[in-house]
Design a protein around this nucleic acid. Sequence first.
DNA 1: TGCATGCATGCACTAGTATGCAAATGTAAG
DNA 2: CTTACATTTGCATACTAGTGCATGCATGCA
Lengths: 115, 115
Amino acid sequence: MSNRKECCRSLSQWLAPDTFKALAEPSRAALLIHMAGNDGPHTVSSLATHLPVDMSVVSRHLRVLREVGVIKAEKHGKEVRLHLDCGDLIRMLRNLADALESCCPPDVCSVKETS
Amino acid sequence: MSNRKECCRSLSQWLAPDTFKALAEPSRAALLIHMAGNDGPHTVSSLATHLPVDMSVVSRHLRVLREVGVIKAEKHGKEVRLHLDCGDLIRMLRNLADALESCCPPDVCSVKETS
DNA sequence: TGCATGCATGCACTAGTATGCAAATGTAAG
DNA sequence: CTTACATTTGCATACTAGTGCATGCATGCA
């Protein structure tokens, strides 16, 4: 079925290892959750106070998140202000969900109700 | 705003590190994509022929995918038949997307159109 | 110009993980 | 019971990634 092959291409397109790897780290997830739940402005040091790790570690985590495009950074004087920018991520998640849904035969991969 | 706090809880609920870690590995992603694009039955050895790694490695990858619930396995004689079961994954992806969307202020985190 | 602040980076260390090979387990067939 | 086949597991190795400390770099201020 060409539909299967079509969805297969979609899957490889949206199943982005780098993004998932970025989200898979507990500290990075905590950073995202904190930024989502608290209004900014967020800086590297302010974020570091909420995590039990060194600021340099937070800096590196933020870099990873920036590289996959989940957060954006802009310099304001000597501090860096960070904010979520999860539009692409949201689109990616939904596209991946759609691709999976059109791939998986419903009898095998039950989307509705608890299987 | 209590809406922000509410979505924050949703985020921590759906931002499951284990699942993302499972999906972040290229070989595991390739396994999922192959299983999605080709009808079964899939066995450990048949899947191993499509990857440049040892069968034992494939076996371990499949174990990880089973542990996060994206594939199911059932023994048929001496072989193990595997199939996708991504209903939970699809729900998780959509819930996470919804949580992110309700978290991110639209002016900061543009969901519609390319920002 | 000198100093303090915020952040990034180099380095060493550690923990976790992927990999391949060989051996063990389980299961069906002779 | 022995053999053959599919899969899993033990073990050793290589590689990747997270961490903390010290240092470097940029910026603002006195």
